[in-house]
């Protein structure tokens, strides 16, 4: 990762996922699968509720897919909130509010377990903060700022981030430019005074520059991108087998 010696900016704005906090080689599908397995275990252990991990996984995928499609049609600059997805998942999985909390905690637990701190970037940011730069995090995510703070605290306890802007809190995303407008308004600085760092070409480079910010792209290695794609295929195939097995089991079960 090539970072300049000094940021030459009053504010450094940083993307969170795959920038401040690295995700590993696991795909989103695999992560949802891991969440579903953990949630199923906890539902059984803590509430005596039996839900097949495949059903939780399907609900997670389906809720997210329909939620973002509905968002695209009704408020394309906004974002979905995780709490709403958990509410919808709980309803379609016939779970009460306490069980919904278990779904929520399982997701956060897996997120924390599968994230690692980008120590090189965090060290550099700490140095910039010591020389008077304000560090903020700006993320397109269904998680609220307080959840991002929880993830950062768990993986990078001495992080220098002073403020978190999450698209779910402001119903405005980086990928449409709307979140950068919120950042500029709330920080009260000129766009040229902010250096934005992130991995996504559209959200973190194109749209940041369109908003007048300077930008710096940090890319994950290509082999990781390929591994994630392969992992997604594997997760899809394994899920298919598991669901078929569950059907066979259920069809053969005594009435």
């Amino acid at each position: 990762m090539l970072l300049p010696k000094t940021a030459a900016a009053r504010i450094i704005s940083c993307d969170v996922f795959d920038t401040l906090l690295y995700r590993d080689h696991r795909s989103e599908r695999q992560r949802f699968n891991d969440i579903a397995v953990l949630a199923a275990q906890r539902l059984a252990a803590e509430r005596g509720i039996v839900r097949h991990p495949g059903a939780i996984y399907d609900a997670r995928l389906d809720v997210q897919k329909q939620a973002y499609r509905a968002l695209d049609l009704s408020c394309p600059t906004g974002d979905v909130r995780f709490a709403d997805m958990i509410d919808a998942m709980a309803r379609i999985l016939s779970l009460d509010a306490q069980a919904a909390e278990i779904l929520h905690h399982a997701e956060i637990a897996i997120e924390i377990a599968q994230l690692t701190a980008n120590t090189v970037l965090l060290d550099w940011l700490r140095a910039q903060a010591r020389s008077g730069c304000r560090i903020i995090a700006v993320s397109d995510t269904y998680h609220r700022g307080e959840t991002i703070a929880q993830l950062l605290a768990a993986r990078a306890p001495d992080h220098p981030v002073a403020q978190i802007y999450a698209s779910a809190d402001h119903n405005a995303t980086k990928r449409t430019g709307a979140l950068f407008e919120v950042v500029l308004r709330q920080e009260g600085v000129a766009a040229a005074d902010i250096l934005h760092i992130g991995d996504d070409t559209k959200a973190d480079v194109t749209m940041a520059q369109a908003a007048g910010l300077r930008s710096l792209q940090v890319l994950r290695p290509k082999h990781l991108v390929f591994r994630r794609r392969a992992d997604a295929l594997q997760a899809r195939a394994l899920h298919g087998f598991r669901i078929r097995a569950a059907h066979t089991q259920r069809a053969g079960a005594p009435a």
Binding site: D62, Q66, A67, Y68, R69, A70, V80, D84, A88
Partner: peptide, 16 residues
Amino acid sequence: CLRLWLFERFLQGDEA
């Protein structure tokens, strides 16, 4: 119907 409800659940604003 379940998917339609999910869609309806996440439509934002009061124009739809």
